[in-house]
Design a protein around this nucleic acid. Structure first.
Lengths: 229, 229
DNA sequence: ACCTGAACACCGTTCAAGT
DNA sequence: ACCTGAACACCGTTCAAGT
Protein backbone atom coordinates (compact mmCIF):
# COMPACT_ATOMS: atom_id res chain seq x y z
CA UNK A 1 0.00 0.00 0.00
CA UNK A 2 1.41 3.37 -0.99
CA UNK A 3 1.77 6.05 1.67
CA UNK A 4 -0.21 9.10 0.50
CA UNK A 5 1.51 11.62 2.81
CA UNK A 6 5.11 12.79 3.10
CA UNK A 7 6.23 10.63 0.22
CA UNK A 8 8.69 11.69 -2.47
CA UNK A 9 11.17 14.54 -2.33
CA UNK A 10 14.53 14.64 -0.64
CA UNK A 11 14.06 12.98 2.73
CA UNK A 12 15.61 15.50 5.15
CA UNK A 13 16.36 15.16 8.84
CA UNK A 14 13.65 13.61 10.99
CA UNK A 15 13.49 16.46 13.47
CA UNK A 16 13.56 20.26 13.16
CA UNK A 17 12.85 20.12 9.45
CA UNK A 18 12.33 23.47 7.75
CA UNK A 19 8.68 23.74 6.79
CA UNK A 20 8.75 27.22 5.28
CA UNK A 21 5.70 28.34 7.20
CA UNK A 22 4.67 31.98 7.35
CA UNK A 23 2.80 33.92 9.99
CA UNK A 24 0.23 34.62 7.27
CA UNK A 25 -0.14 30.91 6.62
CA UNK A 26 -0.86 30.26 10.28
CA UNK A 27 -3.43 33.05 10.54
CA UNK A 28 -5.10 31.98 7.29
CA UNK A 29 -5.35 28.39 8.47
CA UNK A 30 -6.79 29.51 11.79
CA UNK A 31 -9.37 31.67 10.01
CA UNK A 32 -10.35 28.84 7.69
CA UNK A 33 -10.70 26.49 10.65
CA UNK A 34 -13.00 28.85 12.56
CA UNK A 35 -15.06 29.70 9.46
CA UNK A 36 -15.72 26.06 8.69
CA UNK A 37 -16.01 24.47 12.14
CA UNK A 38 -16.48 27.25 14.67
CA UNK A 39 -14.38 28.70 17.47
CA UNK A 40 -14.45 25.44 19.41
CA UNK A 41 -12.40 23.75 16.70
CA UNK A 42 -9.58 26.26 17.04
CA UNK A 43 -7.16 24.54 19.42
CA UNK A 44 -3.44 24.96 19.11
CA UNK A 45 -2.98 21.23 18.63
CA UNK A 46 -5.70 20.93 16.02
CA UNK A 47 -4.35 23.89 14.07
CA UNK A 48 -0.83 22.48 14.26
CA UNK A 49 -2.06 19.14 12.94
CA UNK A 50 -3.84 20.93 10.10
CA UNK A 51 -0.54 22.57 9.12
CA UNK A 52 1.45 19.42 9.78
CA UNK A 53 3.71 21.04 12.38
CA UNK A 54 4.07 21.02 16.16
CA UNK A 55 2.06 23.29 18.45
CA UNK A 56 5.19 25.19 19.39
CA UNK A 57 5.58 26.28 15.78
CA UNK A 58 2.23 28.08 16.05
CA UNK A 59 3.50 29.99 19.07
CA UNK A 60 6.68 30.97 17.27
CA UNK A 61 4.80 32.44 14.30
CA UNK A 62 1.58 33.82 15.78
CA UNK A 63 2.01 34.12 19.53
CA UNK A 64 -0.50 32.71 21.97
CA UNK A 65 -4.15 31.93 21.32
CA UNK A 66 -5.45 35.42 22.17
CA UNK A 67 -3.08 37.04 19.71
CA UNK A 68 -3.93 34.47 17.06
CA UNK A 69 -7.66 35.04 17.46
CA UNK A 70 -7.26 38.81 17.20
CA UNK A 71 -5.10 38.37 14.10
CA UNK A 72 -7.67 36.14 12.44
CA UNK A 73 -10.46 38.62 13.12
CA UNK A 74 -8.37 41.46 11.69
CA UNK A 75 -7.57 39.32 8.67
CA UNK A 76 -11.26 38.74 7.91
CA UNK A 77 -11.99 42.42 8.47
CA UNK A 78 -9.44 43.29 5.76
CA UNK A 79 -10.97 40.76 3.40
CA UNK A 80 -14.55 41.91 3.99
CA UNK A 81 -15.90 43.47 0.81
CA UNK A 82 -17.21 46.98 1.23
CA UNK A 83 -20.94 46.63 0.88
CA UNK A 84 -22.86 49.32 -0.94
CA UNK A 85 -25.49 51.42 0.76
CA UNK A 86 -28.77 51.88 -1.08
CA UNK A 87 -31.91 53.96 -0.58
CA UNK A 88 -33.06 57.47 -1.42
CA UNK A 89 -34.11 58.92 1.94
CA UNK A 90 -31.65 59.33 4.87
CA UNK A 91 -33.63 56.83 6.94
CA UNK A 92 -33.53 54.26 4.16
CA UNK A 93 -29.79 54.66 3.66
CA UNK A 94 -29.07 54.36 7.39
CA UNK A 95 -31.23 51.24 7.52
CA UNK A 96 -29.31 49.84 4.56
CA UNK A 97 -25.96 50.47 6.28
CA UNK A 98 -27.23 48.80 9.47
CA UNK A 99 -28.55 45.85 7.47
CA UNK A 100 -25.09 45.48 5.93
CA UNK A 101 -23.66 44.87 9.40
CA UNK A 102 -26.44 42.41 10.14
CA UNK A 103 -25.97 40.51 6.87
CA UNK A 104 -22.19 40.49 7.03
CA UNK A 105 -22.23 39.11 10.56
CA UNK A 106 -24.55 36.29 9.58
CA UNK A 107 -22.47 35.51 6.51
CA UNK A 108 -19.49 34.94 8.82
CA UNK A 109 -21.30 33.68 11.89
CA UNK A 110 -18.50 31.73 13.50
CA UNK A 111 -15.89 34.47 13.30
CA UNK A 112 -18.44 37.08 14.35
CA UNK A 113 -19.46 35.01 17.36
CA UNK A 114 -15.81 34.67 18.30
CA UNK A 115 -15.28 38.42 17.89
CA UNK A 116 -18.22 39.09 20.22
CA UNK A 117 -16.80 36.65 22.78
CA UNK A 118 -13.54 38.57 23.13
CA UNK A 119 -15.13 42.00 22.73
CA UNK A 120 -13.56 42.68 19.34
CA UNK A 121 -16.74 43.04 17.30
CA UNK A 122 -15.94 46.57 16.19
CA UNK A 123 -12.54 45.42 14.93
CA UNK A 124 -14.39 43.13 12.55
CA UNK A 125 -17.14 45.56 11.61
CA UNK A 126 -15.05 48.73 11.39
CA UNK A 127 -15.39 49.38 7.63
CA UNK A 128 -19.15 48.87 7.84
CA UNK A 129 -19.37 51.18 10.85
CA UNK A 130 -17.51 53.86 8.91
CA UNK A 131 -20.07 53.57 6.11
CA UNK A 132 -22.87 53.89 8.65
CA UNK A 133 -21.24 57.00 10.11
CA UNK A 134 -21.13 58.60 6.67
CA UNK A 135 -24.86 58.17 6.13
CA UNK A 136 -25.54 59.40 9.63
CA UNK A 137 -23.70 62.60 8.74
CA UNK A 138 -25.57 62.80 5.44
CA UNK A 139 -28.77 62.62 7.50
CA UNK A 140 -27.78 65.85 9.27
CA UNK A 141 -26.00 64.54 12.39
CA UNK A 142 -22.58 65.71 13.60
CA UNK A 143 -19.90 64.86 16.17
CA UNK A 144 -21.18 63.14 19.31
CA UNK A 145 -24.65 62.91 17.78
CA UNK A 146 -23.22 60.63 15.08
CA UNK A 147 -21.30 58.68 17.69
CA UNK A 148 -24.37 58.15 19.89
CA UNK A 149 -26.67 57.21 17.00
CA UNK A 150 -24.06 54.83 15.60
CA UNK A 151 -23.40 53.13 18.91
CA UNK A 152 -27.16 52.81 19.53
CA UNK A 153 -27.71 51.15 16.16
CA UNK A 154 -24.64 48.93 16.43
CA UNK A 155 -25.48 47.79 19.96
CA UNK A 156 -29.07 46.96 19.12
CA UNK A 157 -27.84 45.04 16.09
CA UNK A 158 -25.46 43.18 18.39
CA UNK A 159 -28.39 42.19 20.58
CA UNK A 160 -30.17 40.61 17.63
CA UNK A 161 -26.96 38.93 16.59
CA UNK A 162 -26.30 37.21 19.91
CA UNK A 163 -29.48 35.23 19.43
CA UNK A 164 -29.15 34.87 15.65
CA UNK A 165 -25.60 33.54 15.93
CA UNK A 166 -26.29 31.17 18.81
CA UNK A 167 -24.77 27.76 18.15
CA UNK A 168 -27.36 25.38 16.84
CA UNK A 169 -27.44 21.71 17.97
CA UNK A 170 -26.32 20.76 14.45
CA UNK A 171 -23.08 22.69 14.92
CA UNK A 172 -21.41 20.15 17.11
CA UNK A 173 -20.85 22.72 19.84
CA UNK A 174 -23.57 20.96 21.82
CA UNK A 175 -25.32 23.80 23.66
CA UNK A 176 -26.75 23.20 27.10
CA UNK A 177 -30.33 21.95 27.29
CA UNK A 178 -31.92 25.32 27.99
CA UNK A 179 -35.72 25.13 27.91
CA UNK A 180 -37.38 26.68 24.82
CA UNK A 181 -39.56 29.80 25.08
CA UNK A 182 -42.71 27.70 24.86
CA UNK A 183 -41.90 25.79 28.06
CA UNK A 184 -40.66 28.90 29.81
CA UNK A 185 -43.78 30.98 29.27
CA UNK A 186 -46.25 28.18 29.93
CA UNK A 187 -44.61 27.55 33.29
CA UNK A 188 -44.30 31.23 34.26
CA UNK A 189 -46.69 33.16 36.48
CA UNK A 190 -48.49 35.11 33.77
CA UNK A 191 -51.47 36.38 35.77
CA UNK A 192 -52.75 39.64 34.37
CA UNK A 193 -51.70 38.73 30.84
CA UNK A 194 -54.20 37.80 28.13
CA UNK A 195 -53.96 34.18 27.01
CA UNK A 196 -53.57 35.42 23.44
CA UNK A 197 -50.41 37.30 24.45
CA UNK A 198 -49.03 34.40 26.47
CA UNK A 199 -49.48 32.10 23.50
CA UNK A 200 -47.70 34.57 21.22
CA UNK A 201 -44.81 34.93 23.67
CA UNK A 202 -44.23 31.19 23.53
CA UNK A 203 -43.60 31.29 19.78
CA UNK A 204 -40.28 32.50 18.36
CA UNK A 205 -40.50 35.59 16.16
CA UNK A 206 -38.97 35.91 12.70
CA UNK A 207 -35.62 37.49 13.53
CA UNK A 208 -35.03 39.05 10.12
CA UNK A 209 -38.45 40.71 9.99
CA UNK A 210 -38.20 41.86 13.59
CA UNK A 211 -34.73 43.27 12.98
CA UNK A 212 -35.99 45.43 10.14
CA UNK A 213 -39.05 46.79 11.91
CA UNK A 214 -37.06 47.45 15.09
CA UNK A 215 -34.38 49.30 13.17
CA UNK A 216 -37.00 51.39 11.38
CA UNK A 217 -38.54 52.42 14.69
CA UNK A 218 -35.16 53.15 16.23
CA UNK A 219 -33.79 55.12 13.28
CA UNK A 220 -36.94 57.22 13.05
CA UNK A 221 -36.42 58.21 16.67
CA UNK A 222 -32.71 58.90 16.20
CA UNK A 223 -32.64 61.03 13.03
CA UNK A 224 -33.78 64.66 12.79
CA UNK A 225 -37.42 64.75 11.57
CA UNK A 226 -37.40 60.96 11.52
CA UNK A 227 -35.00 60.81 8.56
CA UNK A 228 -37.53 62.02 6.03
CA UNK A 229 -35.96 64.15 3.25
CA UNK B 1 0.82 24.26 65.42
CA UNK B 2 -2.86 23.41 65.45
CA UNK B 3 -4.46 22.12 62.26
CA UNK B 4 -7.37 24.48 61.45
CA UNK B 5 -9.22 22.10 59.12
CA UNK B 6 -10.75 18.67 59.64
CA UNK B 7 -9.83 18.62 63.32
CA UNK B 8 -12.09 17.48 66.14
CA UNK B 9 -15.23 15.33 65.88
CA UNK B 10 -15.39 11.57 65.61
CA UNK B 11 -12.71 10.63 63.09
CA UNK B 12 -14.55 8.35 60.68
CA UNK B 13 -13.17 6.22 57.87
CA UNK B 14 -10.56 7.85 55.67
CA UNK B 15 -12.41 7.21 52.43
CA UNK B 16 -16.04 7.42 51.39
CA UNK B 17 -16.97 9.47 54.42
CA UNK B 18 -20.57 10.70 54.48
CA UNK B 19 -20.56 14.44 53.99
CA UNK B 20 -24.29 15.04 54.07
CA UNK B 21 -24.19 17.20 50.98
CA UNK B 22 -27.34 18.27 49.16
CA UNK B 23 -27.96 19.08 45.51
CA UNK B 24 -29.07 22.50 46.75
CA UNK B 25 -25.76 22.96 48.57
CA UNK B 26 -23.84 22.23 45.40
CA UNK B 27 -25.91 24.64 43.27
CA UNK B 28 -25.70 27.34 45.95
CA UNK B 29 -21.94 27.01 46.18
CA UNK B 30 -21.64 27.14 42.40
CA UNK B 31 -23.81 30.28 42.29
CA UNK B 32 -21.77 31.95 45.02
CA UNK B 33 -18.54 31.09 43.22
CA UNK B 34 -19.72 32.60 39.92
CA UNK B 35 -21.17 35.70 41.61
CA UNK B 36 -17.93 36.46 43.40
CA UNK B 37 -15.28 35.38 40.90
CA UNK B 38 -16.94 34.99 37.51
CA UNK B 39 -17.72 32.05 35.26
CA UNK B 40 -14.05 31.27 34.76
CA UNK B 41 -13.72 30.30 38.40
CA UNK B 42 -16.40 27.65 38.12
CA UNK B 43 -14.45 24.47 37.48
CA UNK B 44 -15.56 21.15 38.84
CA UNK B 45 -12.33 20.75 40.80
CA UNK B 46 -12.46 24.24 42.25
CA UNK B 47 -16.08 23.82 43.30
CA UNK B 48 -15.32 20.43 44.82
CA UNK B 49 -12.43 21.94 46.80
CA UNK B 50 -14.74 24.70 48.01
CA UNK B 51 -17.14 22.08 49.33
CA UNK B 52 -14.34 19.85 50.60
CA UNK B 53 -15.37 16.86 48.49
CA UNK B 54 -14.17 15.12 45.33
CA UNK B 55 -15.18 16.24 41.86
CA UNK B 56 -17.15 13.06 41.37
CA UNK B 57 -19.42 14.08 44.22
CA UNK B 58 -20.44 17.16 42.22
CA UNK B 59 -21.43 14.93 39.32
CA UNK B 60 -23.46 12.69 41.55
CA UNK B 61 -25.49 15.58 42.97
CA UNK B 62 -25.75 18.06 40.12
CA UNK B 63 -24.86 16.28 36.89
CA UNK B 64 -22.32 17.66 34.45
CA UNK B 65 -21.18 21.26 34.09
CA UNK B 66 -23.93 22.29 31.65
CA UNK B 67 -26.66 21.05 33.97
CA UNK B 68 -25.00 22.73 36.93
CA UNK B 69 -24.77 26.07 35.14
CA UNK B 70 -28.40 25.93 34.10
CA UNK B 71 -29.40 25.06 37.66
CA UNK B 72 -27.43 27.98 39.08
CA UNK B 73 -29.05 30.41 36.65
CA UNK B 74 -32.50 29.09 37.53
CA UNK B 75 -31.65 29.42 41.22
CA UNK B 76 -30.73 33.08 40.88
CA UNK B 77 -33.84 33.71 38.78
CA UNK B 78 -35.96 32.38 41.65
CA UNK B 79 -34.15 34.59 44.12
CA UNK B 80 -34.41 37.73 42.00
CA UNK B 81 -36.66 40.23 43.73
CA UNK B 82 -39.58 41.41 41.63
CA UNK B 83 -38.71 44.98 40.83
CA UNK B 84 -41.49 47.54 40.80
CA UNK B 85 -42.45 49.41 37.66
CA UNK B 86 -42.91 53.17 38.01
CA UNK B 87 -44.16 55.98 35.78
CA UNK B 88 -47.49 57.49 34.81
CA UNK B 89 -47.55 57.28 31.01
CA UNK B 90 -47.39 53.95 29.15
CA UNK B 91 -44.03 54.92 27.60
CA UNK B 92 -42.57 55.74 31.00
CA UNK B 93 -43.75 52.48 32.52
CA UNK B 94 -42.37 50.41 29.64
CA UNK B 95 -39.05 52.24 29.95
CA UNK B 96 -39.08 51.51 33.68
CA UNK B 97 -39.66 47.79 33.08
CA UNK B 98 -36.84 47.72 30.51
CA UNK B 99 -34.52 49.55 32.89
CA UNK B 100 -35.28 46.91 35.52
CA UNK B 101 -33.83 44.27 33.20
CA UNK B 102 -30.80 46.48 32.53
CA UNK B 103 -30.20 47.18 36.24
CA UNK B 104 -30.77 43.61 37.37
CA UNK B 105 -28.33 42.29 34.79
CA UNK B 106 -25.63 44.69 35.92
CA UNK B 107 -26.27 43.88 39.57
CA UNK B 108 -25.50 40.23 38.76
CA UNK B 109 -23.02 40.74 35.95
CA UNK B 110 -21.13 37.47 36.20
CA UNK B 111 -24.19 35.24 36.24
CA UNK B 112 -25.84 37.30 33.51
CA UNK B 113 -22.75 37.05 31.32
CA UNK B 114 -22.76 33.29 31.86
CA UNK B 115 -26.46 33.11 30.98
CA UNK B 116 -25.82 35.00 27.75
CA UNK B 117 -22.95 32.64 26.90
CA UNK B 118 -25.16 29.57 26.96
CA UNK B 119 -28.21 31.32 25.51
CA UNK B 120 -30.23 31.14 28.73
CA UNK B 121 -30.69 34.86 29.30
CA UNK B 122 -34.48 34.67 29.23
CA UNK B 123 -34.40 31.94 31.87
CA UNK B 124 -32.74 34.44 34.18
CA UNK B 125 -34.85 37.44 33.19
CA UNK B 126 -38.20 35.70 32.89
CA UNK B 127 -40.00 37.43 35.81
CA UNK B 128 -38.81 40.81 34.57
CA UNK B 129 -39.93 40.01 31.04
CA UNK B 130 -43.38 39.10 32.34
CA UNK B 131 -43.60 42.50 34.03
CA UNK B 132 -42.57 44.17 30.78
CA UNK B 133 -45.25 42.23 28.90
CA UNK B 134 -47.90 43.47 31.33
CA UNK B 135 -47.04 47.11 30.73
CA UNK B 136 -46.92 46.51 27.00
CA UNK B 137 -50.50 45.24 27.21
CA UNK B 138 -51.43 48.22 29.38
CA UNK B 139 -50.05 50.41 26.59
CA UNK B 140 -52.62 48.94 24.22
CA UNK B 141 -50.69 46.11 22.56
CA UNK B 142 -51.94 42.53 22.21
CA UNK B 143 -50.77 39.06 21.16
CA UNK B 144 -47.94 39.01 18.65
CA UNK B 145 -47.62 42.80 18.92
CA UNK B 146 -46.65 42.38 22.58
CA UNK B 147 -44.29 39.56 21.68
CA UNK B 148 -42.56 41.58 18.94
CA UNK B 149 -42.26 44.75 21.03
CA UNK B 150 -40.95 42.75 23.99
CA UNK B 151 -38.38 40.84 21.96
CA UNK B 152 -37.23 44.08 20.31
CA UNK B 153 -36.72 45.78 23.67
CA UNK B 154 -35.09 42.73 25.26
CA UNK B 155 -32.72 42.17 22.35
CA UNK B 156 -31.62 45.77 22.19
CA UNK B 157 -31.05 45.68 25.94
CA UNK B 158 -28.97 42.55 25.42
CA UNK B 159 -26.82 44.42 22.91
CA UNK B 160 -26.04 47.08 25.46
CA UNK B 161 -25.36 44.43 28.06
CA UNK B 162 -22.79 42.52 26.02
CA UNK B 163 -20.56 45.59 26.12
CA UNK B 164 -21.52 46.66 29.65
CA UNK B 165 -20.80 43.21 31.08
CA UNK B 166 -17.55 42.71 29.22
CA UNK B 167 -14.86 41.40 31.58
CA UNK B 168 -12.61 44.22 32.70
CA UNK B 169 -8.83 43.70 33.05
CA UNK B 170 -9.30 43.95 36.82
CA UNK B 171 -11.49 40.85 36.78
CA UNK B 172 -8.72 38.37 36.39
CA UNK B 173 -10.30 36.96 33.25
CA UNK B 174 -7.53 38.70 31.28
CA UNK B 175 -9.27 39.74 28.07
CA UNK B 176 -7.31 39.76 24.84
CA UNK B 177 -5.48 42.95 23.93
CA UNK B 178 -8.14 44.29 21.56
CA UNK B 179 -7.34 47.84 20.44
CA UNK B 180 -9.50 50.58 22.01
CA UNK B 181 -11.93 52.63 19.90
CA UNK B 182 -9.52 55.56 19.80
CA UNK B 183 -6.84 53.55 18.02
CA UNK B 184 -9.34 51.86 15.76
CA UNK B 185 -10.91 55.06 14.44
CA UNK B 186 -7.69 56.99 14.08
CA UNK B 187 -6.26 54.19 11.92
CA UNK B 188 -9.41 53.68 9.83
CA UNK B 189 -10.06 55.17 6.41
CA UNK B 190 -12.47 57.92 7.43
CA UNK B 191 -12.47 59.99 4.25
CA UNK B 192 -15.74 61.83 3.83
CA UNK B 193 -16.25 62.13 7.58
CA UNK B 194 -15.84 65.41 9.46
CA UNK B 195 -12.89 65.47 11.85
CA UNK B 196 -15.29 66.45 14.61
CA UNK B 197 -17.25 63.25 14.09
CA UNK B 198 -14.12 61.09 13.85
CA UNK B 199 -12.88 62.50 17.15
CA UNK B 200 -16.24 61.79 18.80
CA UNK B 201 -16.26 58.22 17.49
CA UNK B 202 -12.94 57.59 19.20
CA UNK B 203 -14.36 58.39 22.62
CA UNK B 204 -16.52 55.87 24.51
CA UNK B 205 -20.09 57.02 25.19
CA UNK B 206 -21.80 56.91 28.58
CA UNK B 207 -23.54 53.56 28.38
CA UNK B 208 -26.22 54.33 30.97
CA UNK B 209 -27.23 57.62 29.35
CA UNK B 210 -27.15 56.09 25.87
CA UNK B 211 -29.26 53.16 27.02
CA UNK B 212 -31.99 55.46 28.28
CA UNK B 213 -32.12 57.70 25.20
CA UNK B 214 -32.04 54.70 22.87
CA UNK B 215 -34.85 52.99 24.74
CA UNK B 216 -36.94 56.17 24.66
CA UNK B 217 -36.53 56.41 20.88
CA UNK B 218 -37.29 52.72 20.40
CA UNK B 219 -40.32 52.63 22.69
CA UNK B 220 -41.80 55.74 21.07
CA UNK B 221 -41.63 53.94 17.73
CA UNK B 222 -43.07 50.71 19.13
CA UNK B 223 -46.10 51.90 21.11
CA UNK B 224 -49.36 53.18 19.60
CA UNK B 225 -49.19 57.02 19.41
CA UNK B 226 -45.69 56.85 20.86
CA UNK B 227 -46.95 55.75 24.29
CA UNK B 228 -48.49 59.08 25.20
CA UNK B 229 -51.64 58.75 27.34
C1' DA C 1 -27.58 6.11 48.55
C1' DC C 2 -23.55 8.67 48.76
C1' DC C 3 -18.76 9.30 48.15
C1' DT C 4 -13.65 8.31 46.92
C1' DG C 5 -9.35 7.42 43.97
C1' DA C 6 -7.52 6.65 39.79
C1' DA C 7 -7.63 7.17 35.20
C1' DC C 8 -8.65 8.97 30.26
C1' DA C 9 -8.57 12.29 26.81
C1' DC C 10 -8.20 16.59 26.26
C1' DC C 11 -6.54 21.83 26.87
C1' DG C 12 -2.77 26.27 26.67
C1' DT C 13 1.87 27.20 27.39
C1' DT C 14 6.98 26.87 28.22
C1' DC C 15 11.65 25.43 27.64
C1' DA C 16 15.75 23.22 26.34
C1' DA C 17 17.43 21.42 22.39
C1' DG C 18 18.28 20.63 17.52
C1' DT C 19 19.65 22.43 12.55
C1' DA D 1 15.86 31.98 12.28
C1' DC D 2 12.85 28.24 12.47
C1' DC D 3 11.21 24.05 14.36
C1' DT D 4 10.83 19.67 17.47
C1' DG D 5 9.96 16.76 21.76
C1' DA D 6 8.97 16.56 26.30
C1' DA D 7 6.98 18.39 30.06
C1' DC D 8 3.82 21.24 33.37
C1' DA D 9 -0.40 22.56 35.15
C1' DC D 10 -4.62 22.60 34.14
C1' DC D 11 -9.53 21.04 32.22
C1' DG D 12 -14.39 17.80 32.01
C1' DT D 13 -15.81 13.25 32.56
C1' DT D 14 -16.13 8.20 33.64
C1' DC D 15 -15.77 4.02 36.23
C1' DA D 16 -14.88 0.59 39.53
C1' DA D 17 -14.80 0.42 44.16
C1' DG D 18 -15.76 1.46 48.95
C1' DT D 19 -19.32 2.07 53.14
Amino acid sequence: VPNPTSEGGASTALTARRVGLDRDDVVDAALALVESEGAGALTMRRLAAELDVTTTTIYWHAGNRDELVLALITRLSDRLAERTVTGSTPAERVLSAATNIWDSARAHRHVTALAYQIGAASVLELPLEVALARDLEAAGLRGVAVRDALRAIVMCTAGFLVVALRARPTDGEAPAAVPPARELWSAADTTGLSSETVAALGRAPSLAALFESTMRALIAGLLPEGGRP
